[in-house]
Design a protein around this nucleic acid. Structure first.
Lengths: 200, 200
DNA sequence: CCTCGGACTTGACAGTGTCAAGTCCCTTTG
DNA sequence: CAAAGGGACTTGACACTGTCAAGTCCGAGG
């Protein structure tokens, strides 16, 4: 009975390690099995196919992203605008800290979430928090404007995360790894302060 | 002699079609060859390996993106702020119109541009235009602020493009395909108008 | 005419995802 | 307590992939 979750967890862990080492497509069923010390077919007992592994990882990722956002907002206190900024930072932070998860979550071509309702649900929850926070911070704006703002916030932090992960910050902007997080936070701060001014 | 470029072009075209049909990892050397009506090994005569094809496609992509940005800025006229907005729209427009190129350009794990100086050069040119335009529009700001603004602009449009391509606009925001472009443009407009206000 | 090199083709190999059919062993049941 | 069942795997096979190695064809140059 314990073994059941044992190999399942091992497979997920090995998969994540492979993804973080060499990108999503480096994930090989057989190598995962090898890494977990089982036959090449054992993972299929828990995951129907390669996609199912990715979907499970994506689901876990959305789940912990949701928690991070929640925690960030809570720690920011009552000021809704500060909460939005904190969530933006948390979003980027999550991507940098868990690049493997992030890739699995946002590469629809490799991971068709539509077919995995569990992962979808976790995704919806995570983004529910984001939208909720933004709605609260811009409560005085009409609904349509709030939506535009929400999309802008999301696109900004998602863009930052994607560009950093993909290496553009290093290659194109010559920002060393150590400072990328800081630069991203400065951009987020500048952005939210702009919206903040407009809010009053 | 003509044949030389003939098959080369055919291979690139077939590759692009495959990528747009099913994502980057659907690109198979052998299927490309089949589609081009040659033996499975023929493409290797022009491209050392799979990566080299992707790199060539990425290079072409950066090149036409650069042209699009330039044209957009020129058409926007003398107002530098309008030019920035136009370039943002052009960036998203490019991603939507050439999803295959966009993927090849921005998936560093699959396409290590470092090893293909030609593609790198085309990339630098394209982004040079972007940065130049932004610098012009915010000439009265200190250099550091200009940089932050430039990164924000880039992250925003890149995030929009990525989220749309990856399907988040459809799945999470329930925005129909027809309207995604428009919504993106609204977000860009809202964003640049904010910066515009701050500029004076 | 002959050879030389570019533009391919054919063949082979290891590695991959996945279907099908076992094998082992613990639990439940008659 | 023996037999049946089923969960947790393993072994074997297949078609497919990228890529190395070795051909084959053929048009131009000497």
């Amino acid at each position: 009975m314990r073994k059941l979750t044992d190999l399942r967890q091992k497979v997920l862990k090995a998969s994540l390690a492979l993804i973080e080492a060499g990108g999503l497509d480096r994930l090989s069923m057989r190598e995962v099995a090898r890494k977990a010390g089982v036959s090449h077919q054992a993972p299929y007992h828990y995951f129907g196919d390669r996609e199912a592994i990715l979907a499970a990882i994506a689901g876990e990722g959305f789940s912990t992203l949701g928690e991070s956002l929640l925690r960030a907002a809570a720690e920011a206190g009552a000021d809704a605008a500060r909460a939005v900024e904190a969530m933006g930072r948390a979003y980027v932070e999550f991507a940098l800290r868990h690049p493997g998860y992030f890739q699995a979550m946002f590469r629809a071509d490799a991971v068709p979430l539509d077919r995995y309702p569990e992962a979808r649900k976790q995704e919806d929850e995570a983004f529910g928090r984001l939208v909720e926070g933004i709605d609260k911070a811009f409560a005085n704006q009409p609904a349509e404007a709030r939506r535009t703002i929400a999309i802008a916030c999301w696109a900004l932090v998602h863009g930052l995360a994607t560009l950093i992960l993909e290496g553009s910050f290093s290659r194109k902007l010559a920002i060393p790894k150590m400072r990328q997080r800081q630069v991203a936070n400065e951009v987020i701060a500048a952005f939210t302060s702009l919206f903040g001014k407009n809010r009053k």
